Simulated scan of single mutants.
Amino acid sequence: MKYIPFILFTVMTNAAAQLMLKHGMMTLGPLTFAGVNPLFKILQIVFSPWIFAGLTVFVVSMASHLYVLSKVELSFAYPFLSLAYVAVAVFAYFIFREDLNAYRIAGIALICLGTVLIAQSGRDTPETEVAQGSSQSKGSVVQ
Rank of each mutant, 00 (worst) to 15 (best):
K71H: 13
H65T: 12
M26S: 09
L81P: 02
V142Q: 14
G107D: 10
S137L: 13
P5D: 04
A17Q: 11
F47T: 12
Y3I: 14
S140A: 11
P126W: 04
V90M: 11
A16V: 00
K22I: 07
I108D: 11
I7S: 09
V88C: 04
F94Q: 07
T125Q: 15
N37H: 04
K22L: 05
V72P: 15
T13E: 02
F52S: 15
Y67F: 14
L113I: 15
S140Q: 11
V116T: 12
V60R: 02
F47S: 07
T56Q: 01
P49S: 13
V46W: 01
L39P: 01
G29T: 12
S135Q: 13
S61F: 00
L39H: 05
V130S: 06
T128M: 12
L21E: 08
L113R: 04
Q120K: 14
K71T: 08
K138A: 14
L8A: 06
Q18M: 05
M20Q: 11
L69K: 06
V86Y: 01
K138H: 12
V141K: 10
A34P: 05
A84L: 04
L117S: 08
L39R: 03
V88S: 02
K71L: 13
L74Q: 10
M26V: 11
D99C: 01
F91V: 15
F52H: 06
